[in-house]
């Protein structure tokens, strides 16, 4: 069962320079494990030690951000196309402070629906991560 995976420039050192690789798996996590068997180290760049999707990357299944599809539990089917992009973010705020705030927001947002507020992006990303 083949799933096409598009790899961004920064991670092509793991794929021998290939822009597109193929893999298999019923979920995103399975797919990344399968890819890691041939492209050792790739999964660690996408998934944190705690087992959550890394904040520095965006992963899409077809046209949808996997953070809205269950993140690493997102279901995959043969013929799906997975795209990995580096998340583009930053800003004047110190990283430690930004991380603390996003965790606080995640805790707050866990009890409410996703809202289109200034806080929502960072919060909902953390909020959907597996505990």
């Amino acid at each position: 069962m083949a799933i096409e995976v598009r790899i961004p420039t920064i991670l092509r050192s793991y794929t021998g320079g290939a822009k597109v690789v193929e893999g298999a798996g019923d979920t995103l996590n399975d797919l990344l494990t399968d890819l890691d068997s041939r492209h050792a180290g790739l999964k660690a760049r996408l998934v944190t030690d705690a087992g959550a999707l890394h904040r520095f990357v965006n992963v899409y299944v077809n046209d949808e951000d996997v953070r809205f599809l269950g993140a690493l539990d997102a279901k995959l089917s043969d013929g799906d196309s997975v795209t990995v992009l580096p998340a583009v973010a930053g800003g004047a705020f110190g990283f430690a402070a930004a991380a603390a705030i996003s965790q606080h927001r995640a805790a707050t947002a866990a009890f409410s629906q996703r809202r289109a507020t200034a806080a929502s992006v960072a919060a909902r990303r953390a909020a959907v991560a597996p505990r």
Binding site: N58, V88, A89, G90, G91, A122
Partner: peptide, 22 residues
């Protein structure tokens, strides 16, 4: 691009806009 964070101290591309633009 839209700053999805709409913040004075943080910026973040909207992931769906980024996919489209990339």
């Amino acid at each position: 691009m839209d700053n999805a964070a709409r913040s004075m101290t943080f910026y973040e591309f909207d992931s769906m806009e980024q996919l489209r633009v990339w």
